[in-house]
Structures are given as structure tokens and as C-alpha cells.
């Protein structure tokens, strides 16, 4: 996904004088060719994440469209007040693009994990949040984000699904069933499809979660919902509640656990098991919920 992002943005810089890229050392080398062509619009600020967002806000105040990129916790958590004030409060837009997901590479430990990113951005108004599950979806989502004026978060991952789905902003029906709806977000779809094999459930897929496709969820026709997100469990629970605010419904949320800090290294696959985001864990949760 990162390669698709860098290639797409680097090409767009050649054609759109409004675009600017701001990095804080992460992916600096990947943008080096673009920097050589556009030294004043591809800015690496060094390891200064507060300045990274502040500079982006200033660029936007002059009419540019900043694309800001770093590792998930360093893009969203560390400079969160800058995101709130230097972008939101100034009423300017930007495209924030993270890599690393929640725990794409757990060997680096807790400091490099960012499962709270979407939940944090959810506290701020006006953000569009994309969680692509395939590099082709990145390519499909970026043009509108780059051409717009709003505040957009694009959450990239090294993990992806086998195939891409149309990035329409609406939920896609991947499988139809009768006992409930399983909503898979971004890269969780592969495990969700494996988990629901042979189960009589509808599977929806989302690569855009804000705005949340309330109508699409209701259109699936079930009020028993299993929400599978690759970040903090239940991040979109309030959106499901909004979708069904006039009817009784049940929700089971699967995602990165909130009950304790995970102090483990290893692989992302091992962390999936720990959070119940592996196919077996998802299948077990669905079976128990729809029993």
C-alpha cells in the first residue's frame, strides 16, 4: 500500500501545484525523487511530529493541499493537539496517511503500535476515514482525497486482502446470509471470509468508515451485527447504534482489545490470535453471538 501511495502522490505532485507532502523522516527516501523535482513542496521536517502537523496547517492556510505521512502513533497520537488545533480549529484541510496499522510489525513493541488512531480522530468533527484493504483501493481512494479540501485520514497497512473491492464510500455486500451481518473493515476481510465460510451470515466490507454507511448496514437486513475492525474494538459501535437508533439490535465488536496493554513482540499473525482477530477467533465469536 505504501508503494501505491508514494507512486500516486509523487505523480500527482507533477500535475497539481496545490499539493505538498510533509514527512517526519518516515518514508523520506521513498519521496526523494519527488523532492528532487519539487523541493519546496516535498518537505521533510526531521523527527519533529508537532512541527509536521503545524507546518501542514500553515501550508493549508496559504491554499496548499498538504499530504502528511508517518507511522501511525507518530502521525496521530504524538501530535494530536496539533491535529485538533492546527488543522481542525483553523478550519483547514489535509490528507493524513499512516503506515503500520495497529500492529503490522510487533517486533518494535508497544511504542510503535497505534490501535487508537481512528478512535482519537473520532473525537474530532469533519474527518473522512479510509481503511483500505488492498493496494488497488489506495489508488482508488487517493485521487478524491488529494483533489478535495477536507480533512482525510488514510490508514495504510502492510496487510491486505486477496482482492480489491470498489472504493465507493459505501459498504459492499460480499456474501449474503440470513442470521446476521458481519461488517469487516479494511484488511480484516480475509480473516472474516475464512471465519464465515459455511456460516449463514451476510458479510459487508468497508474501506471507508467515516462517514459511516448507516443505510448500507440497515440495508443488509439484520439487526444482529458483528463489527470486525483492525483497531480498538468497538471504535464504530456508536455508528452501529446510530444506524439502528429506532430499532432493537445486538452488537458484538471484535478488534484490538482494550482490557490490558499487550506486552508482546512476535508477528502480526500472532497478535491477531491474541486479539481474537484471527479467522478461528472471529469464527468462535460469531458462533457464540448468533447461537
Amino acid at each position: 500500500m505504501r508503494e501505491t501511495f508514494v507512486d500516486t502522490v509523487s505523480t500527482a505532485l507533477d500535475h497539481d501545484p496545490r499539493l505538498a507532502v510533509v514527512t517526519a523522516d518516515i518514508s523520506r527516501d521513498a519521496f526523494a525523487p519527488a523532492h528532487a523535482r519539487h523541493p519546496h513542496r516535498v518537505l521533510n521536517v526531521g523527527i519533529r511530529e508537532q512541527a509536521m502537523i503545524g507546518v501542514a496547517g500553515g501550508l493549508a492556510l496559504t491554499g496548499l493541499r498538504p499530504v502528511v505521512h508517518s507511522y501511525t502513533p507518530f502521525l496521530v497520537e504524538r501530535p494530536f493537539e496539533q491535529i485538533k488545533l492546527d488543522l481542525g480549529h483553523q478550519d483547514v484541510g489535509a490528507v493524513l496517511v499512516s503506515i503500520g496499522g495497529s500492529y503490522d510489525d510487533p517486533v518494535w513493541g508497544r511504542t510503535h503500535q497505534g490501535p487508537a488512531d481512528v478512535a482519537l480522530l473520532d473525537t474530532l468533527p469533519g474527518w473522512t476515514v479510509h481503511v483500505p484493504g488492498h493496494p488497488d483501493e489506495v489508488a482508488a481512494l487517493l485521487p478524491a482525497a488529494l483533489a478535495g479540501d477536507g480533512r482525510v485520514y488514510l490508514r495504510l497497512s502492510t496487510r491486505h486482502n486477496a482482492t480489491a473491492h470498489p472504493a465507493t464510500g459505501r459498504f459492499t455486500v460480499v456474501r449474503e446470509g440470513h442470521r446476521g451481518t458481519v461488517l469487516a473493515v479494511g484488511p480484516t476481510l480475509g480473516n472474516v471470509l475464512a471465519a464465515t465460510e459455511g456460516q449463514d451470515v451476510t458479510v459487508l466490507y468497508a474501506s471507508t468508515v467515516r462517514p459511516f454507511d448507516h443505510r448500507g448496514l440497515r440495508a443488509a437486513g439484520h439487526t444482529d451485527v458483528v463489527l470486525v475492525e483492525p483497531y480498538l474494538a468497538g471504535t464504530s459501535a456508536h455508528e452501529v447504534a446510530t444506524a439502528f437508533d429506532d430499532v432493537a439490535h445486538r452488537l458484538r465488536a471484535i478488534g484490538v482489545r482494550r482490557d490490558r496493554e499487550v506486552r508482546a513482540y512476535g508477528t502480526a499473525t500472532e497478535h491477531d490470535v491474541l486479539h481474537g482477530l484471527d479467522a478461528a477467533g472471529i469464527a468462535k465469536t460469531i458462533r457464540e453471538f448468533l447461537r
Binding site: Q50, G54, V55, G58, L59, A60, L61, L64, L85, D86
Partner: peptide
């Protein structure tokens, strides 16, 4: 030009503004 209050934000915005003008 900027909404302010929480301290330590204006200078980062100012650097970005100056860089944005240079880029244009």
C-alpha cells in the same frame, strides 16, 4: 490569521505559512 490559545502552536503554523508562500 489563526485561532490561538493553547500555547506553542503559532510558530509551527507560521513556519508552514512561510514555506507555503515560498512554494508558491
Amino acid at each position: 490569521e489563526i485561532g490561538s490559545g493553547s500555547l506553542g502552536h503559532g510558530l509551527g503554523l507560521g513556519v508552514g505559512t512561510a514555506l507555503g508562500l515560498r512554494a508558491q
